[in-house]
Write a protein that binds this DNA or RNA. Sequence first.
DNA 1: CCTCAATAAGTAAATTAGATTTATTTAATA
DNA 2: TATTAAATAAATCTAATTTACTTATTGAGG
Lengths: 420, 420
Amino acid sequence: MGRIRFRSVKSVMDNAKNQDPPREAAAHGDAVRGSNQSGMRAHNERLVLTLVRQMGPLPKAEIARMTGLSAQTVSVIMRALEADGLLEKGAPIRGKVGQPSVPMGLVAQGAYFLGLKIGRRSLEMILVDFLGRVQGRAQTSHRFPEPDAVVRFAEKAMTQLLGKLPVQHRKRLAGLGIAMPYRLWEWADALKVDPAQMAAWQDRDVAVEIAQRLEVPVYLQNDASAACGAELVFGDQDKPRNFLYFFVGFFVGGGLVLDNALYTGRTGNAAALGSAPVPSGDGQMRQLVDLASLATLEKALLNEGGNSDQIWGDSQEWTVPAHLLEHWLDGAAQGLAHVIAGSVCLIEFDCVVIDGWMPDHLREALVARTVAQLKRSALPGIDVPDIRVGTIGSDARALGAASLPLSNRFLVDRNALWKG
Amino acid sequence: MGRIRFRSVKSVMDNAKNQDPPREAAAHGDAVRGSNQSGMRAHNERLVLTLVRQMGPLPKAEIARMTGLSAQTVSVIMRALEADGLLEKGAPIRGKVGQPSVPMGLVAQGAYFLGLKIGRRSLEMILVDFLGRVQGRAQTSHRFPEPDAVVRFAEKAMTQLLGKLPVQHRKRLAGLGIAMPYRLWEWADALKVDPAQMAAWQDRDVAVEIAQRLEVPVYLQNDASAACGAELVFGDQDKPRNFLYFFVGFFVGGGLVLDNALYTGRTGNAAALGSAPVPSGDGQMRQLVDLASLATLEKALLNEGGNSDQIWGDSQEWTVPAHLLEHWLDGAAQGLAHVIAGSVCLIEFDCVVIDGWMPDHLREALVARTVAQLKRSALPGIDVPDIRVGTIGSDARALGAASLPLSNRFLVDRNALWKG
DNA sequence: CCTCAATAAGTAAATTAGATTTATTTAATA
DNA sequence: TATTAAATAAATCTAATTTACTTATTGAGG
């Protein structure tokens, strides 16, 4: 319906099925769908865009070889995408026998996306281009998140961010994504807020409310899975096809990439690893969130009479006593190692990515300790996966939010091929 | 190449891409493939067969509604499948307004499949029809599995089982599946066999060797995942789209169904849950296989001077002292509960299925205790999934082996759509 | 240095496959 | 007899493949 089209060309741009609210899309519990020609074309267009995004600019012939599609088909598809303003020719590459190849790469101005992060302490909206580069940013902080305030902020921030964009680019806004903790209302205690004040979240659907104020599709995802999406879509290249992701913030959560696509499962809450059981030394079971979240670090800091505001203000400039950090790092690494060891038995990841809201050196220390802990507690039959530091950092959740409309409209996913 | 065709019709039957050795198919690590028309047709045919298998006989119009395909397309596809001898018309259903609907169901003789189970104590081959009904069975027991003996047995059993089949049905053999423990050679100690005698498994590929003696494709899968496949393909209807599966045999292993398809991951060894870490009371980490496998029960039995042969002979008639069973059940349930609680955070299953080589009442007791244990150790944020007893039972691995060629040629899977 | 064979990229036109649309037939109920 | 629903034939449409060609380059031979 009110969906923007950049060009009136039958193409991936027209794949208008994705404007359903994200909850429905995530559920995909309907009957299995058949596939038809238009689904096929849309899929092949997404495939081309996905490959170019992953590998950088590629000539048509190379795409044809990689996809197994005929050269002619790829030629038609890529010229259409070029006409759509999503791909552009690069400088011809000479030096090899035969006609020079013309690599085609993504056009930065091809599409724009808004990402809204709803955090425990702040709201943030960013505007990114087709390459995932941040073009604008708006922020506000709060003591705890409220639906009305979120909608008001979103409306103001959208206007402000889009206002900065050259007029001809504004209509290339392709969607807005929201990254928000799952079941926000259950965390009132942890946020030291009256549960009644958080109860509003149970009945409100900010995604729908924001969608009413915008002409483009709106997607909602839990914050850690969204951050995982940022790593998948915007992260360093040569990402493996399957990986497990952790984002350590006020709480800790996970994300899961299977076959190059974010896996969000039946209810959209897959990889809710904060709840994963972790044995603590005393034989009692605890949960990953008790060990590896910044809420735990904050508590320790407050117990010693410290001030926790500095943690939430800037992710790079922390002055936390070393012994507290040490203790927190050990616990967090132990928890992460246990969850990784269990998860890798279920799904064989090529690697695990750990990111979070914290100074770079701390992220690296956390990864190093997790690796060490995994080696120490090695069990037969479990291959320790490659563990890496996230390449996005503190912005992962907002960027991940922005990646949702991008993935849904321009990248291959398991559902893109089927009939609407 | 040497692939049997039941009819020279362009259809799912001709989808000859699947004859690669299963390891390659499982790896699917190649570049992402594009999709073309023949892939589309093959997919839609598989979709129809999958729906009819899941739901029972369905009229064309109903399939059209469920798949979203046009009535005409479904009509063409289903008539082709009928001509292929895979579907047949049932009695017209009258009593509703309009022309009576003619439900179409699977033809039992539409295809046959061989399933070879390589066990620690025995070899078994079964022949099943398109409905998964066992049409023939051959067995032999051994002290430990040897490649040469396996190939010899397979050759003899194939001849014998196919010999029983009416001649015109023999050419409808669609493939052979093998269910075999992963990394068999690592279990020499547990089987109390000289590691040198098991080393041969490292260099031999019985799937390839058997394939050379057979005109149809051969697939290999670890035994627990194969058993999971049996539950998916042949198990009771109304199976959820996503479930976790355990098979408790000499060892314990898992299987994983995502979006109605067996998920075997990068190396084909997904859901290797026997290796999953489980905390034991004393603060030490153990693995599920130490708690929930029959090897553990056997050890306890032998420790008390009992005879374990009765366990392996018949899965229904056990005479194991009650206190040993009690102790084993408790440990196994504890282990399963921990692994389930961890796994459900990663992937939100609709349900968990537990099956195994054991008397029916014991399987039910194991499920009941696992449920109780999960409730006892409930942690916030973890929804306890529905836990069910497997509907296949002791035959699950052999039936699962037979389900592999069936799934690969006749049912939807994530890869069926792409170009070969 | 020039020429030309070889090679590879890229595309237009014709062909093919398979889904959809439209119109029609059939067979039941109300 | 009107209405409804299933089923399908014929025509149409879409998108991929095949075939045949052009273009632009390198590298070998003169």
